[in-house]
Design a protein around this nucleic acid. Sequence first.
DNA 1: ATGAACTTTCAGTAAATACTGAAAATTGAT
DNA 2: ATCAATTTTCAGTATTTACTGAAAGTTCAT
Lengths: 173, 173
Amino acid sequence: MEEEIVKLEEAREEFVAQWGIMGAQWGINRTMAQIHALLMTAPEVMSTDEVMETLAISRGNAHTNLKDLVSWGLIRIVTKKGERKEFFEAEKDVWEIFRRVARERKRREIDPALETLRNCKAASEDMKSAEGKAFHDQMGQLEDFVSFASKMGDRVASMQHGKAIKLAMKFFS
Amino acid sequence: MEEEIVKLEEAREEFVAQWGIMGAQWGINRTMAQIHALLMTAPEVMSTDEVMETLAISRGNAHTNLKDLVSWGLIRIVTKKGERKEFFEAEKDVWEIFRRVARERKRREIDPALETLRNCKAASEDMKSAEGKAFHDQMGQLEDFVSFASKMGDRVASMQHGKAIKLAMKFFS
DNA sequence: ATGAACTTTCAGTAAATACTGAAAATTGAT
DNA sequence: ATCAATTTTCAGTATTTACTGAAAGTTCAT
C-alpha cells in the first residue's frame, strides 16, 4: 500500500508541472500556476512553509504568489483555531475556477483593451481619407467583437453550473 | 488635410502599442502582436523592410515574428509580379482571426494539457485511499471541463460568421 | 512593554525570453 | 556558372521577468 502513495505523488507532480507550463503559455507565471495545481490537489489546507518545501521555492516567492492567487479568488486563507499561521485552500470546483479567471481577466485585460479600441475609433471618427475610413472601420469591428465576446463571458460566468450545462446541451443539439 | 494623416498615424501607433501589451498578457510575444496590429491596419501589403523600419526592430526579429504569424495563419505571404521580395498581408476579418487563434491554441496548448489530465486520471484509476480517490476525481472533473470547453471552441470556430451571430442572439434571449 | 511567531517587503541576483546584426544559405535572372 | 537580391539562421547581448533571502514590519500572548 506504500506503493500507492508513491504513485499518487508522482501523478500529482506531473499535474503540477504541466499546469505550470500551461499557465506560462497563457501569461500566468509558472510558480503561481504550480501552487494553484498543488492546492487544487491537496487533501488538506497547506501553510506557506509546506508550499515552500514541496515546490522547493523561497519564502518570498511563495508568499507573493499565494497572495496573488488570493487576489484572483482562486484560493482562500484559512485559519485554524489555536494556530497563528495562515493556511491556504483552493477552490476545487472547475466551473467556479473558470468563472473567477474569466472575471479577473476581463477586469484586468479586456476592459483596458476595449478602452483603447474605443479611443482609436473615436479619434478616426470623421476622417475623410480612404485610409482613415478603413482604420475607423477596423477599430469598429474589433470593438464589436471584443465587447461581444466579453459580454458572452460575463453572461456565462454569472450562470449557475446547472444552467450552463443545459445551455451547452441545447447548443450541441 | 495633412493633419488627418498625422492623427491617423498617432491612433495607429496607440493601437499597435496596446495590442502588443495585450498580446504579452496573453502569452504572445509583444513584437509578434505589434506586427499583427500593424498589418491589420495597413492599407497595403508590407515588406519585411517596411515592418523593420516602422517598428524600429532588427531584420532577424522581424523575420522570425512574421514567419510565426504566418504559421498561426494570421498573416499571409503575398508576392508582387516582377518583384522578388515577399510582402505580407493580414487577415482582417475578426471572426476569422478568432477562429485561427482558437484552432492554434487548441492544437498547441489544450491538447497536450488534456493528454496530461488523462494520464493523471489513468494513473490514479484504481487507488484505494481517500487521497487517491479525491485526486482521481479532481482530474476527471478538470478533464471533463477542459475537453468540453475545447469542443465548444471547435464547434464555434467551425461555424460561419452568420450562424454564430444567430446562435448568439438566441443565447441572449 | 517585551518578544516569539509569523507576514511582508525589497534590493540584489538568477533565469527566461526576446532581439540584434552579421554571416550563411537560397533564389532566380542573366 | 555567376552574382545580386533576398531570406534564414544563430551566437552573442540586452531586456524582462521571476526568485531569493534577509531585514523590517506586524500581531498577539504574556
